[in-house]
């Protein structure tokens, strides 16, 4: 049972790492938002699930944290993307696409 929890935590941190790696590698702010939000959302949910396996009595608060992350993380990223768009940042290679289309 404990090994399942540990594996879930490891999987979660791996996704957190992939999110940060996406943040590191992606060429423009929108792609960074995509990588940074999505991978870290599932990563933290997986970590929470793994902890819930270790400490089953903590499930109410863990569920609350999970719900909170699930609801707020896309809102934060959308707000940020809109702010970036309105400050005039255009997506990477957008001009090229327009030229070909």
């Amino acid at each position: 049972m404990q090994i399942i929890g540990a594996s879930l935590i490891l999987l979660g941190t791996s996704f957190l790492f992939l999110g940060a790696l996406g943040l590191f590698r992606m060429p423009d702010v929108y792609n960074r938002i995509q990588a940074g939000t999505k991978a870290t959302t599932l990563g933290s949910l997986s970590v929470l699930l793994g902890i819930a396996v270790y400490y089953p009595l903590w499930w109410p608060k863990l569920l609350l944290i999970a719900l909170f992350i699930l609801l707020t993380s896309p809102i934060a990223s959308s707000t940020l993307a809109r702010a970036a768009y309105k400050t005039g940042l255009r997506p990477y290679r957008a001009a090229l696409d327009k030229g070909e289309g």
Partner: peptide, 11 residues
């Protein structure tokens, strides 16, 4: 850019 930094802070 500033949005880049804020994304990093969010992550």
């Amino acid at each position: 850019t500033t949005p880049d930094r804020v994304v990093a802070a969010d992550t």
